[in-house]
Amino acid sequence: MLILWCSVSVAQTDSLFRAQDLCNQKRFEEAIKVIDRAIVDPQTNSDPFSWHLRSFAYLHSYKSKGQNNTAYLNLLDTSLASAIISNKLDNTGEYKDNNRNFIKNASIIYYKLCSTFLQDSLNNEKSLVFYEKYKKATLLIDPEFNMKAKDIEYYSATGAIFSELYINKNFDPKYGDIAKSSLLKVLEMDPKNIKANLNLGVLYYNQGATLMRQMDYDVDLSQLDVIQENAKKLFKQSLPFMTKVYELNPEDKRVLEGLQGIYYSLNDFDKSNEFKQKLEAQNQR
């Protein structure tokens, strides 16, 4: 709150003083009404302080509703947009640091929401919306921020969470598909990412194994051939990812176990035994 008091511009009008006073009394909703009039008033609408104050009022109004309250996200969005406008108008840089703090605040909240939707609600679509907002806000305050690393972290986490969900929710393909597309995004950015390769290999394998597991015993024999064919395609899709991990780390027990299982399911018992022996040799070390 104090940051505002020391930043008062000589160009302020009574309405801005009034709004600032309301902010200091934590009467943010009333302050917003006053500020929203000020930003359309020709006397104050090009004053960076008007927008700076608006950013502050909207941010704190949002926070007063509860940090994870998505019903009032327009308040946070408005705070961010106002801070951006204030920065553009602020030729002297008087409000730059404070505006940056407001943007950083928004960025943190968006990331919290992105994580909450991903981990708690398992709603990847909403999570992604907030992740994109987080990225936009973060790049505003630090254009050099290594967003590629963050993207890899985010999509890896999405892939891992939905891979686990796929297993725990009786192999529901909708979760497997989300995991798959997320992990493929990781590999677009980082083709040698061991965990993404491994998780994708496991995912494709599990999808093939699920087709077999869910097959009824009295399935018609012509249908059995179709199921075997579809499972085979998935096992074969699993192979390049597992092979990649094997190339990167031939002593990784998870990949030795994986390749043993994939070749077994492809009825290639010689290859399966080859990796079984490698795994046994690893276990004896």
Partner: peptide
């Protein structure tokens, strides 16, 4: 900003 330690493990085969 890294607020939450996001899970990033590897998941098992239906071994």
């Amino acid at each position: 900003i890294l607020l939450i330690a996001i899970v990033f493990g590897c998941f098992g085969f239906q071994q």
